[in-house]
């Protein structure tokens, strides 16, 4: 059963259709990538899922029931892109305050804060103020306050911005752990290399519409261009028209080839063997998500034009 299902969600603002008929479903335990260029409508979509905005149309089904913002926000942890903490408040009190706002009792919150502070080696920070922390430390604290109440659904908007590689890895490991222990994570970003590394399933949004939906593997398969890299002991000579592939480029002793329509990799290998060439490597080149992203979004203006509304 999916933890979250969006059905034909719409949210129009005075000057633009921020979210224009988006449906998607997020399975339990998934790490779900919500991708899209700036201004695609990701934040508006997330704000509807977190109960900050009401959709104009459409339904949100959370954990099998109609989403009820007042009660369900306790099961959601949200780390917005525009995030911060009270600068002059002590770190321990701050974590306690945010946990209590999520509905935890004082003692529950205290136990969980202690557990996380020890895990992240933050115990000695309790009485420090946020303004005394470095940006990276602040981000760690922000992450802790987001997941402290053990939410079923965790939404992270650009979670790695402002983190050094060490802390990035720390947070990444935590994200995997949380997913393993049953939490679902929606991960919004435009950093594609992180998505390939972390997400199982992705959705690409552009101009308020969903333009891509599938597992990372599936999407790559769907958008592959039949490109292969082969390593040969000697360079390829002139290709006859009979060859089942075309050269798409080469570097050093390896060639990038594109298999012709209707031919298979076996045809290629047979052709090369027939030529008496010795092959020492052969592998498929799948497009990176970055390439797919750019291909799909390219040509549409990055900053959205204001659309005329006839409301």
């Amino acid at each position: 059963m999916p933890i979250l299902e969006l059905q034909n969600l719409k949210k129009y603002f005075a000057t633009q259709k921020a979210v224009d008929d988006i449906s998607l479903s997020v399975e339990k335990g998934q790490i779900f990538g919500l991708l899209g260029p700036n201004g695609a409508g990701k934040t508006t979509l997330i704000r509807m899922i977190t109960g900050i905005f009401y959709p104009d149309e459409g339904d949100i089904i959370f954990d099998g029931k109609q989403f009820d913002p007042v009660n369900d926000v306790g099961y959601i942890g949200y780390m917005p892109e525009e995030r911060g903490l009270y600068k002059k408040m002590k770190i321990g009190e701050q974590a306690m305050y945010l946990a209590q706002l999520k509905g935890l009792s004082h003692s529950e919150a205290m136990a969980k804060i202690k557990k996380w502070f020890i895990r992240f080696e933050m115990e000695s920070w309790w009485n420090k103020k946020v303004e005394d922390l470095s940006k990276g430390m602040g981000q760690k604290l922000q992450f802790v306050t987001t997941v402290l109440h053990e939410p079923k659904l965790i939404i992270l908007d650009e979670p790695f911005s402002g983190l050094d590689p060490v802390n990035s890895n720390l947070i990444k490991d935590e994200i995997f752990q949380l997913a393993q222990s049953g939490s679902t994570i929606i991960f919004s970003t435009h950093r594609m290399e992180q998505v390939e590394e972390i997400c199982n399933h992705i959705v690409l949004v552009n101009k308020g519409k969903k333009i891509l939906d599938g597992t990372v593997k599936q999407v790559k398969q769907d958008y592959k261009e039949n490109l292969f890299r082969i390593g040969l002991s000697q360079p390829l000579q002139e290709l006859s028209a009979l060859a089942p592939f075309e050269l798409a480029g080469h570097q050093d002793d390896s060639h990038v080839i594109k298999i012709k329509e209707g031919r298979s990799p076996n045809d290629v290998l047979r052709f090369l063997l027939d030529q008496g060439l010795s092959i020492h490597s052969f592998n498929e080149l799948l497009p990176s998500l970055n390439d797919i992203f750019i291909r799909l979004v390219e040509g549409t203006p990055t900053a959205r034009q204001f659309q005329a509304m006839n409301a």
């Binding site: 949200y78 009270y86 945010l98």
Partner: peptide
């Protein structure tokens, strides 16, 4: 202060 420290959105994800 809540707006400039960017905590506003964190809070409104918990309370109205």
């Amino acid at each position: 202060e809540e707006k400039t420290s960017r905590i506003a959105e964190v809070i409104v994800s918990s309370v109205k």
